[in-house]
Amino acid sequence: MFSILLSRIGQSALTLIAISFAVFAAVFLIGEPAALYDPLVREDPARLAALRAELGLDNPLHIQYARFLADVMSGQFGQSWVYQEPAMKVILERLPATLELVGCAIAIAFCLGYPLGLISGLKKPSRLSAAIERVAVLGYSAPTFWVGLVLIYIFAVGADALPSIGRGDTIQILGVRLSVFTADGLSHLILPAVTLSLYEIGYFTRMISTMTEETKHKTFISFAHAKGLPMRRVISNHLLKAVSAPLVTIVAIETGALIAGSVITETVFAWPGVGKLLVDSVAALDRPVIVAFVILTAMAFLALNLLADIAQMLMDPTLRPKRVAA
């Protein structure tokens, strides 16, 4: 088991290196690398030449890549052109807001999607389950930005009950500023979180419904019935266990996917997170921030995938190495 873990970590590291090389190629080979710095410098040829020498751009490629890699590992991505601050700092400042939003959205999606999916899967085929499924499809077909605007229209414009822009008051917990624990923060958080979660509610419901339906037809469920277990026990002990193992992986991966969805939601609600930062950076072509974002996101996804694999290995006995060669 240990060796499997090591090999997975090794694979992730290799993938990260491959991605870093791809980014290096994209940024340093396609574009003018000196453009990584202050645009004002670019206009002055003398300063540009001096900067190029200073940056070591006259060095052979592999040395440049090595320096790039070293910089990445120590977290230096250069200065953001827009904010005139280290790119890493810019990103880290906004990360808690996004994590808070994503966390709430996943929680909502899971709490709604799990029971709905379970009921739908158990009751298939029936009108109820068909209805639940159709609504779920509607949920993940709706464009996120549209959902946000509809919610704003209903609650902010129509009912004037909830704010439509920005983040509310925050309090500091363990060094991180969170807004979910303040009333004002909560009122600002509701609409964006619901918007972001809608896609996932639909997705979870469908996924769990399908998994439940497949599992309930499996032979070991019939056998559990046949050996005399009451329905409640069959569902709680046998069916749910079978469904939960792959579920953990799905939740982990979807959490990552939500970081993407947050790009749109944060733009609609002007939520000060990394998603909005990314959009602004792409619009302004703020390369240092984009590069930093890519590398950090890649690391985050690789870590999430690794965690998902580990969780699955823990929960699914068939994936663990056998104790006896059978």
């Binding site: 993938t15 491959a18 991605i19 991966i253 990552g256 996917a257 970081i259 993407a260 969805g261 790009v263 749109i264 990314l278 959009v279 950076s281 792409v282 072509l285 390369r287 984009i290 890519v294 996101t297 890649a298 996804f301 690789l302 995938n305």
Partner: peptide, 16 residues
């Protein structure tokens, strides 16, 4: 690798 992360992120990257 491409399929492990959401499409919109890659799309934004390519556009940049």
């Amino acid at each position: 690798i491409f399929l492990s992360a959401p499409s919109i992120l890659f799309a934004l990257l390519f556009i940049s």
